[in-house]
Design a protein around this nucleic acid. Structure first.
Lengths: 250, 250
DNA sequence: TGAGTAAGACTCAAGATGAGAACAACGGAG
DNA sequence: CTCCGTTGTTCTCATCTTGAGTCTTACTCA
């Protein structure tokens, strides 16, 4: 084997079978207290009629640009829209097994997105087949998208531990209780309100007070809550660890 | 924009400009107490004579298989070799900006590897231009490989915090002191020997005793040390946190 | 107006961490 | 062969962090 010549051969487009590159996006949001993912119904073979992650071919643009463009198209948000700019997008992983697409070799660069509450995808046109679904109800996606979604969920759960990205699911101002609801939805377990409150306020840069409060109490009672906005930290130190992972560690 | 038709158009190999897919590998090892990375000198333009990460074109194989094949070629280890099987390899990130390669669009799927002490790359042939270099001395790599290396180092430093992968840099049996030297080399700072010892033994599944000890003390004195092997944990709980990151958090 | 709910401030025990001391076992220099 | 410096291992102790629970107060809804 001759490594350099192999390496260089990679640049001759005629020397190897063609490869297509797509981005697929795992966009998560929280609706009615449950974690939802944006899915589209496939209109063509293969996997016609099956649900799939939104995505598309990469054009003359960076991978991140492709992901944000696809996100705008599938959510029906205008590309310049402020809400869209508030969606956090990061690269998740690349899936490229031969045979993952029956037609040809397709490399899919998956992105993971955290979105604040967004409207239903625009009705009419191709986007009519897009919808937010609770992640617990999702299975049997097209291609290897079940695996992509599972990887995205695991990444999202881990990210909430050591980054302040939980705030990306919320509006510009939020209460500690709303932030706790985000953690509960993503992690799938309840958190101790008092301890969560203490922890969030004690981690430097996680949130900062706006000085204001909600204009009324909760729907089922309780006092008005103070409002916060996201702080300037990019990493939480010390991290917020998920409870009870003793068993899953092996 | 019509998302589904865009998506499907991605599968027509003639509809878009050709794309090449390579794997590039950030293989780390520890030599003489310092973190080293495997680099090759490029024999052809572009970046002729410059150092680069080892890598090559992806053939009819999975991305992980391509990475392991390239690793075997560049290190001179036989594909079936036991040492090679002990190298931990994981996908790092995909780099695909237009223009990152001047000749055509190249998507590079980067892999990160943790290797126990390996021999110098085989002399003679193309592999003569490969060598282990201390990561602190590395700069001005070809393509965007400086960024890839930096991302790999940051991932490696983080992985040592919450996984037992530090043991992947060592042989099948090791002492706590050797493991501490791995952490010191990767993190670039000294650790408190007593606290590190206590921590490693208290985290469930990190290491398990072999019952034996080294046959003689350290080179500069000290008693014989007990030997351990890697435990069955895949995640460390609680994690071993790096000291003093207060400033880097923002 | 009363019942129920939730925000936020506490308390307290248990666990984890950082810094350092102590001691024994060893290699190497002389 | 002996002393010195080095290192593995165990301890101590103060401090910080966490998990679990209580208490007070402000609010909504019936």
């Amino acid at each position: 084997m001759r490594p350099e010549s192999t390496f260089l051969a990679g640049y001759d487009p005629t020397a190897f079978p063609p490869v297509a590159v797509t981005v697929d996006i795992v966009v998560l949001t929280i609706r009615d207290g449950a974690l939802h993912v944006l899915l589209v119904e496939r209109a063509e073979h293969p996997y016609r009629g099956r649900l799939a992650l939104p995505g598309g071919f990469v054009r003359d643009e960076t991978l991140a640009e492709a992901a944000r463009r696809e996100l705008a198209e599938e959510t029906g948000l205008r590309p310049g829209e402020a809400t869209l700019a508030r969606v956090h997008l990061e690269q998740l992983r690349t899936y490229g097994d031969p045979g993952r697409d029956p037609r040809m070799r397709v490399m899919s660069v998956a992105y993971l997105g955290f979105a604040p509450s967004l409207p239903d995808p625009r009705a009419g046109g191709d986007a009519a087949s897009a919808a937010w679904l609770p992640v617990d109800d999702v299975r049997d996606l097209a291609f290897d998208h079940d695996v992509v979604l599972a990887d995205g969920l695991e990444r999202a759960r881990a990210k909430l531990e050591y980054t302040p990205l939980g705030t990306a699911f919320l509006g510009p101002e939020f209460t500690i209780g709303e932030l706790r609801a985000v953690y509960a939805a993503v992690w799938g377990e309840q958190l101790h309100p008092g301890n969560f409150h203490r922890k969030v306020l004690s981690v430097p840069g996680f949130v900062e007070s706006t000085g204001g409060t909600t204009s009324r109490g909760g729907e089922r009672g309780g006092p008005r809550a103070r409002l916060y906005r996201a702080g300037d930290a990019t990493l939480l130190h010390p991290a917020l660890l998920r409870p009870t992972r003793e068993e899953q560690v092996r």
